[in-house]
Design a protein around this nucleic acid. Structure first.
Lengths: 230, 230
DNA sequence: TTAAATTTGTGTCGATATGACACAAAGAAA
DNA sequence: TTTCTTTGTGTCATATCGACACAAATTTAA
């Protein structure tokens, strides 16, 4: 209040983008192009433009740095308590967490090809700033959200066999799930439409493919429905 | 990224402070002291100092503007998608939500006495900026948190009769609760210590006073305990 | 071509949690 | 001393959860 016109804090956005494939959850990192940390891996992100909504800034950075458009994007947390989180300036980071489905894992780069890569959770290196902390926070968030919102579907193909969904839950929550009870519970919501297609990869009996009915979910939510998986 | 050194966005913090008394949930508002909105009620808050952690900025503003130190403070959301939310400058607001217990409702003002007041939820006026929206978001947050974290106790006196807790849930969630089932459920957690005191206000049988056992809760949480009220 | 291995699909039953419901006890107010 | 108000408490029916096993469909290996 006392220094109204002399505040000098920069506002950045950063994104933790998750993708899931073959029982592995991965995070998107990009290679820093300038500055002290040049060539180090960091979370995609950057400074917000003066006339740009925060959310658009994230979307722009993701597209510029990795050529990607995400399926799901939500604000995570604003990191700004450590005033030296960026040693050069006071920078606060409005962080987002995002989900993409497997078809988007091929990084059809924009300006800056192949300086973006997917890192499985257990192979994420030491990162500059507080980016490891941001990733940690977003993992907690995705784990808790999985339990009461149907966000898992954003990480799967539009049509998927039940086992994909089940493995996704097991992988992210890091625990065993009873296959029969899980299926029973999910189906009881009536939010999956059976398709007439079957999956056909590898050994074993082929599986029916299902589709998540988003519009039915939206309708139910308005009536107080809670998607809850324990 | 292209305009690294010329960004001109201001960073503010705002707080929605809740207090509960006599079946009423209230929010703290302060009178704007400068500018176009002088003398209008707004959420407490202000610009962050260059060398100040966000959380400290909120605490400072709350103390300066209302002489209050809160029991519970948590980051709510960062509002920055509407680039004209403040018509003078681009300002983003890192918003917090806070809880105080009834003893703190007496506003022993600091610098700026009596320009702070408690407004029951249904008496909150039209506010400048997007402050009504921020309040709305924080109400949703407190409602959902009540269901899976023991934050209700922060709004009560240290020692409280069971009926206070029950009324608090009913008021904030805006629904009827079965007294017996509610008590059974809460007591089953083993997180309330009975004191040997009794409440003695008005008519009716005096009630035992209880105390929330925070350290036991902290211990249980580490073991995976979830405080869940439906 | 046959046997083995792999994955999908499905129901029951006991244990646990939830939700509905009523009356006596303690004290204040009339 | 009677009435009113609020606290304190148990049962039972229903719904949900969690454990558990075997047959069907297909690929892979022998």
């Amino acid at each position: 209040m006392t220094q109204r016109n002399i505040q000098n804090i920069k506002v950045a956005v950063d994104a933790v983008v998750f993708a899931y494939k073959e029982k592995t959850l991965s995070v998107l990192l990009v290679k820093q192009k300038f500055g002290v940390n040049k060539d180090q891996w960091v979370l995609p992100g950057g400074l917000v433009k003066d006339d740009e909504p925060l959310k658009e800034a994230v979307e722009r950075e993701l597209f510029e740095e990795a050529g990607i458009k995400v399926n799901y994007l939500e604000q995570l947390f604003t990191f700004g308590d450590d005033i030296n989180r960026d040693p050069r300036n006071r920078v606060i980071s409005v962080s987002y967490f995002a989900l993409v489905n497997p078809t988007k894992m091929k990084l059809k780069s924009g300006t800056d090809a192949k300086d973006a890569e997917w890192f499985p959770l257990d192979e994420i290196p030491q990162l500059p700033f507080d980016h490891n902390k941001i990733i940690h926070t977003s993992i907690k968030r995705i784990q808790s959200k999985l339990a009461y919102q149907p966000i898992g579907f954003e990480l799967l193909n539009k049509e998927f066999p039940f086992s994909d969904l089940e493995n996704l839950y097991q992988t992210i929550l890091n625990k065993e799930i009873d296959r029969r009870n899980f299926r029973k519970k999910i189906l009881s919501f009536g939010l999956l439409n059976e398709t007439d297609k079957m999956s056909q990869k590898g050994a074993g009996r082929p599986a029916k493919l299902f589709k998540f009915n988003q519009s039915k979910y939206n309708k139910l939510v308005k009536e107080g429905f809670l998607f809850e998986i324990k």
